[in-house]
Nucleic acid binder design. Structure first.
Lengths: 211, 211
DNA sequence: GTCTATAGCCAGATAGAC
DNA sequence: GTCTATCTGGCTATAGAC
């Protein structure tokens, strides 16, 4: 089982380098503006060689998403290992990680509309499995937080989950960074605080939500 | 001054139809996936005719953005006309309008990264002027809300403003709609409530924001 | 001012030598 | 498996007839 040929190891390293490059470009320019030529140039190999490893541009993006989901799961596991932590704090830590990562230019984001890309993602077993796993793990904490009164129990758990996911592609940190008035730490604190207060357990202040 | 030739009126109507089509496609597929051929087909004219009205695809997108900013200003004016309304309710009403519009597939959204498009937008006097006007008007209400204690006074007003702007391209309503469990009205209520609570005046519940 | 037809370009994908 | 060179399709933009 542990027998892995040197050849395979080299392959793995190269593919890791490719995915890392895709990750950078994806978070920097987005899927549509990222070109396969750029990916090849960044890795330092020819485009044709790239296509030996991944069959399409969509597959490249999917691999980057799988990677980030794996890392997310790692963060979740680390958080789960810290005993006696209130669920809301665990969720806050994961969210903080996502925001920090986005600010650092290391969070790939995909257009939620590109249909061919969606098709590839939905067909990717690893991606789907990881996405469900992450959702389940976070979902548990959300429900626990609601039972403990830390999270607004009138919000469907999905809404909290999606709101958390959306922090990974929130444009607000980028705007604030572009403004140049705040350092990264402050930006993370502001965005995270707003998110946390938005899902918190107290009753909503504006009852009828102004029509 | 009021003398407008029939010819000009026809031109205006046609250009309105073009911008409306761009608006739909832009909110449906986004800028990169929208093709000029599609716009022409949707309007029912030839592509070359389109280019008689607008010099480039970027200009089409810019025109759509100017239009939506104008409409936003209209909503703001209408809200300002309602006397004795607390500033937070005014802000909530504008935000509600944006979310509803996005859910209806009528809110154009641009990639915040495409450089050539950014250049065209920044060079568009109408666009810049309207954007500043909208920001100023909303900014006033934000500051008033903070003074009245309705909005968290520890948040820089920009943060509140950007958070509000971000509701126009928030993926959460789309996710919830795709889930099929909630009708539009409920989705708007959930997202709006989360936003409002996020900026509300009470102290943040999670003091140290979980590291 | 509208059309048809096409130029020109660029990016994803591939062939074939080594 | 990696390279250079090329194909192919689709897109923005334009020429030129009417």
């Amino acid at each position: 089982m542990a027998k892995v040929s040197l050849r395979e190891q080299v392959l793995r390293v190269r593919e890791d380098a490719i995915i890392a490059a895709v990750n950078r470009l994806l978070s920097d320019k987005g899927y549509d503006l990222m070109t396969v030529d750029e990916v090849a140039a960044e890795v330092g190999i020819a485009k044709a060689s790239l296509y030996r490893h991944f069959p399409s541009k969509e597959a490249l993006a999917a691999a980057a998403m799988v990677r980030v989901l794996r890392q997310t799961l790692g963060v979740i596991d680390a958080e789960a290992a810290r005993a006696q932590r209130p669920p809301l704090e665990r969720l806050a830590a994961v969210t903080r990680w996502a925001i920090e990562r986005q600010l650092a230019g290391e969070m790939p984001s995909l257009p939620s509309q590109n249909s061919s890309l969606r098709a590839v993602l939905l067909a990717d077993k690893d991606y789907i499995e990881l996405l469900m796993k992450v959702s389940d793990r976070l979902g548990e904490w959300i429900v626990q937080g609601q039972q403990a009164g830390e999270i607004d129990a009138t919000l469907p758990p999905e809404v909290v989950l999606y709101t958390l996911f959306a922090r990974a592609c929130d444009p607000v940190p980028g705007f604030l960074k572009a403004g140049g008035q705040y350092d990264d730490e402050r930006i993370v604190a502001l965005v995270l605080a707003t998110f946390l207060k938005g899902i918190s357990g107290s009753a909503a202040p504006a009852s009828n939500s102004a029509r």
